[in-house]
Deep mutational scan, measured.
Amino acid sequence: TTVHIGNVTYHFDNPEEAVKWAKEMAEKLGLRIEIHGDTIRVE
């Protein structure tokens, strides 16, 4: 599972961890997340 924040990509072996981490980052940055299969974007 990959999480994209701007130009930076993070890789997670556990999809649930990826979603949890992306949600925390989105809250901190005042952004929202979009999930497309195994790709998560924070925008």
Rank of each mutant, 00 (worst) to 15 (best):
I5F: 08
W21T: 01
T1G: 05
E24R: 11
G6M: 11
E43K: 09
L31Y: 14
I33S: 02
V42S: 02
E16H: 10
M25I: 13
R32H: 15
E43F: 15
A18K: 00
T9Q: 12
D38L: 07
K28N: 08
T1R: 05
E34N: 11
L31W: 15
H36L: 13
I33D: 02
G6V: 06
I35H: 06
P15Q: 14
R41E: 05
A26K: 02
L29N: 09
H36R: 12
I33E: 02
H4Y: 14
R32C: 09
A22V: 03
N7V: 09
I40V: 05
H11L: 09
V8E: 12
Y10S: 02
V19A: 07
V8P: 00
E16R: 09
V19S: 05
L31R: 05
E16F: 11
T39P: 02
I40L: 03
T39K: 06
F12K: 00
F12Y: 03
G30T: 03
N14I: 08
V19I: 15
A18F: 03
I40H: 01
K23P: 00
A22C: 04
T9Y: 08
V42I: 14
I33T: 03
K28F: 11
T2W: 13
G6D: 08
K23G: 06
V8D: 10
N7F: 10
G30I: 03
R41W: 15
I35F: 11
K28D: 06
R32A: 14
G30F: 05
W21Y: 07
N14M: 06
K28W: 11
K23W: 10
E27L: 11
Y10V: 09
H36G: 04
T39E: 11
A22H: 00
E24Q: 12
I5C: 07
V19N: 05
A18H: 00
K20M: 12
T1F: 12
E27P: 02
G37R: 04
R41G: 03
R41V: 14
P15R: 15
H4T: 10
E24Y: 15
D13I: 10
E16A: 12
T9R: 10
T2Y: 11
T2E: 06
G6F: 13
W21E: 00
G37A: 05
D38T: 13
R32T: 15
D13A: 12
V8H: 14
N7I: 08
K28M: 13
Y10M: 06
P15D: 06
H11D: 04
V3P: 01
R41I: 14
E17A: 11
Y10D: 00
V3A: 01
H36P: 01
E24G: 08
K23F: 10
E34A: 11
T39S: 10
L29Q: 05
G30A: 05
M25W: 06
N7L: 10
E43L: 15
H36V: 13
E27W: 06
V3G: 01
G6W: 10
T9S: 12
K23M: 14
I40Y: 01
K23H: 09
E16M: 11
G37H: 05
W21F: 14
D38G: 08
M25L: 11
V19T: 07
E17I: 09
E16N: 10
W21L: 02
I35N: 04
H36S: 11
V3R: 00
V19F: 15
K28Q: 11
E17D: 12
N7W: 11
E34K: 12
Y10C: 05
E16Q: 11
A18G: 06
T2H: 11
F12V: 01
A26I: 02
E24K: 13
V19W: 15
A22S: 04
V42C: 04
